[in-house]
């Protein structure tokens, strides 16, 4: 098996695990609960590469055609089997 770190690929945006304080302020900023965040699966290659576990929130900073740079936040959830 190859050990390619997908995070280093130029087409994969930056994934950062957020601290609990950051998550709390994020949820407060948007007046939401974790359920309302977009989600991503725990077995997503990028999630595996950055070592996030279900329940953590990842900050994704990507290049945007319209805004130059855009940030998005995703909650890691378990992928239901199959």
């Amino acid at each position: 098996m190859t050990r390619l770190n997908v995070l280093l690929h130029e087409m994969v945006p930056i994934h950062q695990i957020m601290t609990q304080e950051e998550v709390a302020s994020l949820l407060a900023d948007y007046d939401i609960i974790e359920e309302h965040l977009p989600k991503m699966y725990h077995d997503d290659p990028a999630v595996k590469a950055c070592g996030a576990k279900p329940g953590m929130v990842i900050r994704i900073t990507r290049k945007s055609q319209t805004a130059g740079e855009a940030t998005s936040y995703r909650l890691v959830v378990r992928q239901p089997k199959k």
């Binding site: 309302h36 945007s64 319209t66 805004a67 998005s72 936040y73």
Partner: peptide, 12 residues
């Protein structure tokens, strides 16, 4: 349901 689809409309 109040779920966020995009954090800023059209990213900008």
């Amino acid at each position: 349901g109040g779920k966020i689809i995009q954090f800023k409309y059209g990213e900008d």
